[in-house]
């Protein structure tokens, strides 16, 4: 009996020491599904250069990463949107002081089926389509077809970003939301699958997930144009309308191995990985 208790104590100790950051060479990294491939690629590249550091990466969604950071069970939280004031307050109550690092940029592409003749939309039209005011492609210069709206699930950081930046056009007092008939698909793959085989569909997704099976629309703020397609150039010069920063959050100023890793991520060599995965580097 006492042996069991002792065993529990030992595991409990080792558990708490592994979550005690900066001492060990194990870095835990969790959060955004948008960023999970990117974080994995960085971790792999870093492990090749510095084999003494172990980095474990997992996804789940931005919310999962933030929850883990607040509970102090993770070293780095990957988040595809800025943390809200309530979340930061909650963290401080737990003795966690979130520090934000911008590690890459991402553009959200609005996508349609390649057979759809529509190539350009204004942001207002996209907003009206997704909120249910426009229901036929005819009204935006396309064929006489019903519009099928495709979106990620409500727990996705991309969903929330799209809601605020496009449907509500960045106006925080705007209470417009997705039309009830919007399809909420559990994965990026589901969105690409539906849009690539359905000529009625319109969807959105992070640039890194968009494949050649779908057509990316050019967007403009006003009907006169210019209509701009997302690319690393148009995102960096801020001419493309829906782009966002991707963040990593740590608890307080990082030290030791953690600091070295975050510094490495923001150097040009690591930012090269960002480009190959379809995101936009910060430098």
């Amino acid at each position: 009996m006492s042996a069991v208790v002792l065993f529990l104590l030992v595991t409990a100790c080792s558990f708490s020491s592994s979550s005690n950051k900066n001492q060990s060479n194990i870095i835990t990294n969790r959060g955004s599904d948008t960023m999970v491939n990117l974080a994995l690629a960085w971790a792999e590249a870093y492990a090749k250069e510095f084999p003494q550091v172990e980095i474990s990466v997992s996804g789940g969604g931005s919310g999962i990463g933030i929850a883990a950071l607040i509970n102090n069970t993770v070293d780095i939280a990957n988040v595809s949107r800025a943390m809200t004031d309530t979340e930061i307050q909650e963290a401080k109550k737990n003795g966690v002081y979130p520090l934000q690092f911008i590690v890459a940029r991402d553009a959200i592409g609005v996508i349609v089926n390649p057979s759809n003749p529509v190539t350009n939309l204004t942001l207002g039209q996209v907003s009206d389509i997704f909120s249910g005011k426009i229901n036929n492609w005819r009204d935006v210069g396309g064929e006489d077809r019903p519009i099928v709206r495709v979106s990620r699930e409500v727990n996705s950081g991309t969903h929330v970003f799209f809601l605020q930046a496009v449907i509500q056009l960045g106006n925080p007092t705007d209470k417009t939301i997705f039309a009830a008939s919007t399809l909420l698909l559990p994965s990026s793959e589901g969105i690409i699958a539906e849009v690539s085989q359905n000529p009625n569909a319109i969807g959105y997704d992070g640039l890194g997930y968009i494949t050649s099976e779908v057509k990316v629309l050019g967007l403009a703020l006003d009907p006169a144009g210019p209509f701009i397609e997302p690319s690393s150039t148009t995102v960096r010069d801020h001419s493309y309308a829906i782009a966002r920063d991707l963040y990593m959050y740590t608890n307080g100023e990082p030290t030791g191995a953690l600091k070295e890793y975050l510094d490495w991520i923001r150097n040009p060599e690591a930012q090269q990985v960002v480009t190959t995965l379809g995101f936009i580097p910060i430098t």
Binding site: A180, L183, L185, P186
Partner: peptide, 11 residues
């Protein structure tokens, strides 16, 4: 069901 019904909460 989650994969094929579209998950749009409409009536």
């Amino acid at each position: 069901v989650m994969m094929v019904t579209g998950n749009a909460a409409q009536m």
